[in-house]
């Protein structure tokens, strides 16, 4: 990257390191951090939306819908998350391909599952065999986001469900006494008040979500774990201008520090948010703030 990097063998230690850390592959490594942040930025709202729908379904008066919501929460939370990640990536892919197969090739007669193969017509393949590399990568990332959203949606649903039930009954009764309908009570009274009860659980879910991002590696995405493994491995002078021994330990130490910093910053931010949300609420926290002011 720098002009003095043309002949790394002649450089001093610090200059060598500065060249080493700015090689093309390292820039891909740094880009992978953006991928992680991007995943978080996309997944968090989607998972929250899934969670909201799940919680609404779970407290629904329609029995089958309520079972669906509760079942979603219970099953996803009862099984190791990583099993879900491995499961959904294949299952979603096959589901999409199967749906497309039924729509695009209605006169295809062979069964989709033949022994150990899953065969759909070429037009139904996702992504199409002819599409460029970036489409494949984006599709993989999309599957990862949906998988994360499904799993963490269940966590969020559980928290939001608890939050909705924690809103004091008197608040809802007051709303009803003012002649609000069910829907109005839900949107104008329940939803604005539930956040303060749900936030501790949601911030916990957020922390767990951050700590789950390295699992992207298992979904076949070139994420930070992938790069740390491949960059850290022993490099001989034959293949690179920057030969070094097995540095994977140091790369993973760096990732460890990155995650520590990230969770710490989130903790501080969430604490502030909690303080703001508690303001003016009918809780002990809100009462303490009122007295202090």
């Amino acid at each position: 990257m720098f002009s003095y990097c043309t002949d790394p063998d002649t450089l001093g230690q610090l200059a060598w390191l500065s060249c080493y850390l700015t090689t093309g592959v390292h820039l891909s490594f740094y880009l992978a951090f953006l991928k992680v942040l991007g995943l978080l930025a996309v997944t968090a709202p989607v998972a929250l939306a899934f969670g909201f729908l799940g919680a609404m379904a779970a407290r629904s008066h329609i029995l089958p819908l309520s079972w669906l919501g509760r079942g979603y929460i219970a099953i996803v939370r009862g099984v190791p998350d990583i099993a879900f990640f491995l499961f959904f990536v294949i299952a979603l892919d096959q589901l999409f391909e199967y749906v497309r197969h039924r729509i695009k090739c209605p006169d295809w007669t062979g069964p989709v599952r033949q022994g150990n193969d899953f065969i759909v017509c070429p037009a139904a393949k996702l992504p199409l065999g002819t599409s460029p590399e970036w489409v494949h990568e984006t599709y993989g990332f999309f599957l990862a986001v949906v998988t994360f959203a499904i799993v963490f949606g269940a966590f969020a649903a559980n928290v939001l469900y608890g939050g909705m039930r924690a809103v004091p009954r008197a608040q809802l009764e007051t709303a009803e006494a003012y002649g609000m309908s069910h829907r109005q009570t839900f949107w104008r009274v329940l939803v604005p008040q539930m956040w303060v009860y749900a936030l501790p659980g949601l911030s916990n879910t957020w922390m767990v979500l951050i700590k789950a991002t390295p699992l992207l590696f298992l979904l076949g995405i070139d994420d930070i774990v992938y790069w740390a493994r491949s960059l850290g491995g022993t490099k001989t002078a034959q293949f690179t201008d920057y030969p070094h021994g097995d540095w994977r330990m140091w790369y993973f130490l760096f990732l460890l520090v990155f995650y520590l910093g990230f969770t710490r910053v989130s903790e501080v931010v969430l604490e502030r948010l909690m303080k703001r949300l508690t303001h003016g609420q009918a809780t002990t926290g809100g009462e303490a703030q009122r007295k202090a002011a």
């Binding site: 700590k211 991002t213 390295p214 774990v225 493994r229 994977r248 330990m249 993973f252 460890l256 995650y259």
Partner: peptide, 14 residues
């Protein structure tokens, strides 16, 4: 504060 997954990797290479 750090993912168990990364802890495994670090410990193994350590």
């Amino acid at each position: 504060g750090s993912p168990l997954f990364i802890q495994f990797f670090f410990a193994y290479f350590f």
